[in-house]
Lab assay of single mutants.
Amino acid sequence: MEVRTIKVFTTVDNINLHTQVVDMSMTYGQQFGPTYLDGADVTKIKPHNSHEGKTFYVLPNDDTLRVEAFEYYHTTDPSFLGRYMSALNHTKKWKYPQVNGLTSIKWADNNCYLATALLTLQQIELKFNPPALQDAYYRARAGEAANFCALILAYCNKTVGELGDVRETMSYLFQHANLDSCKRVLNVVCKTCGQQQTTLKGVEAVMYMGTLSYEQFKKGVQIPCTCGKQATKYLVQQESPFVMMSAPPAQYELKHGTFTCASEYTGNYQCGHYKHITSKETLYCIDGALLTKSSEYKGPITDVFYKENSYTTTIK
């Protein structure tokens, strides 16, 4: 009895394709271990004539594949690729409408935090270190965002349907971005203890939790000093293409032309909904596939993004 075979390709990165001759009487799992086709788990399936010449994702289970996976995804987590594939199996079914010149995501599976993050990423200057993220990001900007969303979920250790947080998501993504040249110098002034300067680099240099107003941050924000008295913390120097200011959701007025974009969060910790506000020729609110415009805006804002380049204080 002759062994019926077909020729397929296996890959971990969709760049390096490895030619395989597979036995049609055995499952993919018996031949390769966990195997995925377009995100779908085909591990328990036997090869079919229609699979001839198709590319299958496999887990990096030998040295060659491990090197290829690390170079593309910059992670050695053995569960990463499987999590990416199972997320992709959902995100490829989502709709990605162009809204006001940006790629958004039609609401499904509690994905409003991903839509808000995706919209924000198209408006701030950011370059990702893992080629996987950078490639998928370019495709997302062009309207094909399924891979990018699935990668975000995998890097953030999230599953489809789980509630997510924009600030946490951005923080994970910033860790995989090139923020080497970003720098922030802060000064804390206390009447009792004097003053202390701190220099922050990388992710810490672009994120701040405690106030939404970048102007206020430049002037000074009140913080408790270690001595128990009130101290003032203010920005001395900022070198970065953008800054992200966050605070627990509270009524906040966004003035046209003073910011790049913002995240609105309605609801409580267990259950809520994100919308995205962007400042173009007027203010726009993007909620999944829905767009509304207004000249002014007041609502429960939790993150505001500002364009920056270089700032030095005039406070002496």
Rank of each mutant, 00 (worst) to 15 (best):
K54P: 05
E52P: 07
A247T: 06
Y265F: 15
F56K: 04
V3A: 14
Q122F: 04
E308P: 11
S171H: 15
G202C: 03
L173I: 10
Y73V: 03
K44M: 12
V206G: 01
L59P: 06
Q122H: 03
H256Y: 11
F56C: 06
V189D: 14
E162F: 01
A250D: 10
A250M: 09
L291V: 15
T312I: 11
S240P: 01
K106Q: 12
T27W: 08
I301H: 00
G164D: 03
G257L: 05
F32N: 08
C225T: 01
S294K: 11
K191W: 07
E52Y: 12
C182R: 04
Q237I: 09
Y252N: 04
Q222T: 12
H276P: 01
G29P: 04
Q31G: 07
V58P: 05
M85V: 07
S246T: 00
V206R: 02
L65E: 08
N61V: 10
C112V: 02
D23L: 14
Y172M: 11
Y252Q: 09
P249G: 00
T19C: 09
T55V: 12
G161M: 05
Y84T: 03
V12G: 07
Y138V: 14
N49I: 14
E264F: 01
A146S: 13
K7V: 09
G267R: 06
D63T: 09
C193P: 04
K316V: 15
R167H: 07
T169Y: 02
P249C: 03
E71G: 06
P60V: 06
A142Q: 15
H90P: 04
R4F: 11
R66S: 10
G101I: 03
T313E: 12
K106E: 13
C271S: 10
T198D: 08
Y234S: 07
I152Y: 02
Q230V: 13
A231G: 04
S279E: 01
L153H: 03
V221K: 05
T192L: 09
A289P: 08
L119Q: 02
Y297S: 02
T103P: 03
V12Q: 08
Q237S: 14
A115M: 06
P224V: 15
T313C: 15
E264R: 01
T11Q: 06
E308V: 12
Q30A: 13
L65D: 07
G161E: 04
V166K: 03
F259Y: 00
V22L: 12
T43D: 09
N187A: 12
K201Y: 15
P248E: 08
G82F: 13
